[in-house]
């Protein structure tokens, strides 16, 4: 198993050297988005509004963190089931998204879309929140706080462990 230490934003050549099953330790700024946040992001895209962050330079993490305990950098962190976002992924890929982090299999259609856009789908291990929390440098609510766990959070990662699930050519 090859291990790659990568920092966002990824270059096309960073993605090209990845193989399915490789391990990635990912660093940099990412944003979380689950079902509700995807719907809202897509509404903005459809209205032609610029998103408040550049999808090309970051990663979308399918994650709804638990609240922070006092004095903690973050609460419990981990991936949610990606397949719920299968039908909501294409508009983000079309806006330049290159890195997605989630859990589990994607539909054949979504897999094809990820490959065609030269993007990479990374799977993180579910249910290892304390391990992942140690790789979080910062975690703040960024958009739509009223959605609670489903809001968009901005996180800085320091070597978050994940595995290459799908990678574009």
């Amino acid at each position: 198993m090859q291990v790659h230490e990568l920092r966002l934003p990824l270059r096309a050549e960073d993605i090209r050297k990845l193989k399915e099953g490789d391990k990635v330790l990912l660093s940099g700024i990412i944003y979380t988005a689950r079902d509700q946040a995807h719907k809202k992001l897509i509404e903005l895209i459809e209205k032609g509004v610029d998103l408040p962050f550049k999808l090309r330079e970051t990663a979308i993490f399918y994650c709804g963190p638990s609240p922070k305990a006092e004095g903690k950098v973050c609460g419990a962190i981990g991936p949610t089931t990606s397949s719920r976002m299968d039908g909501l992924t294409l508009p983000l890929l079309q806006q330049g998204l290159k890195v997605i982090i989630g859990k589990g299999e994607r539909s054949a259609e979504c897999e094809r879309q990820i490959r065609e856009h030269g993007a990479v789908y990374l799977t993180a291990i579910g249910g290892i929140s304390a391990v992942l929390a140690r790789t979080i440098v910062s975690c703040e609510t960024y958009l739509w706080e009223e959605l609670g766990a489903e809001a968009v959070y901005r996180m800085e990662l320091d070597r978050l462990p994940c595995y290459v699930g799908i990678v574009g050519d």
Binding site: M1, G21, K23, C63, G64, P65, S66, A69, K72, G75, A76, I77, G78, T80, I125, G126, G127, I128, S129, A130, V131, A133, R134, A149, P161, Y163
Partner: peptide, 28 residues
């Protein structure tokens, strides 16, 4: 190899959760 890596992370998580006061999973 991958199974060992994944199981190792899960076992480590079970130790760290109590020490770091972080729930086992974000889906509590």
């Amino acid at each position: 190899e991958l199974e060992r890596d994944v199981l190792g992370a899960i076992l480590e998580n079970n130790e760290l959760a109590a020490i770091d006061n972080i729930p086992l999973c974000q889906d509590t």
